[in-house]
Amino acid sequence: MRILTIFVLICLVVSLVFDRKKTFLGIKKGWKMFLNILPTLLNVLILVSVFLYLVPKETLIKWLGKDSGVMGMFIAAVLGSISLIPAFVSYPLAAILLKSGVSYQVLAIFITTLLMVGVLTLPLESKYFGLKVAIMRNSLSFVGAIIIGVLIGIFI
């Protein structure tokens, strides 16, 4: 994280040197996005705080940890498919879950389904592609996410 912060600062300086106006516009845009996402982020943090209090660590590890196997992957895939969490919020959330004992494999599936599969946005998607094609794309992405998770479990 420190390296990334330094990287951002370097980008900022370079950007300032080239175009001051553009840089301020960029900062303003970023700040606006941050303020937009902040309530969602806080809400998710609150829910996770309560969730991690209610669910003992051992239980979490048993269901979603390294040895949770097929069940853990399935839970992650279903949760990721039906949730509408912005990606900006999903990474901090995943970081917390990782520290609480959830495995990389399960998180990879959760994140990938969250990004690629949208059950709640299916009605919107079918307006563009038709219902059948939308369901096909989502199903293939669902399977793809599980393959991605399994491979990550093998490599990490």
Binding site: V8, L25, S49
Partner: peptide, 29 residues
């Protein structure tokens, strides 16, 4: 629960504004 929340919050709040500045710069360039 409060302790949990505070711990998560502290970690994010220092880091996030930097990330969004990066995204904003990316967007304008």
């Amino acid at each position: 629960i409060t302790n949990n929340f505070w711990l998560f919050f502290k970690e994010m709040i220092i880091f996030l504004p930097f990330m969004f500045i990066l995204i904003g710069l990316f967007d304008v360039w």
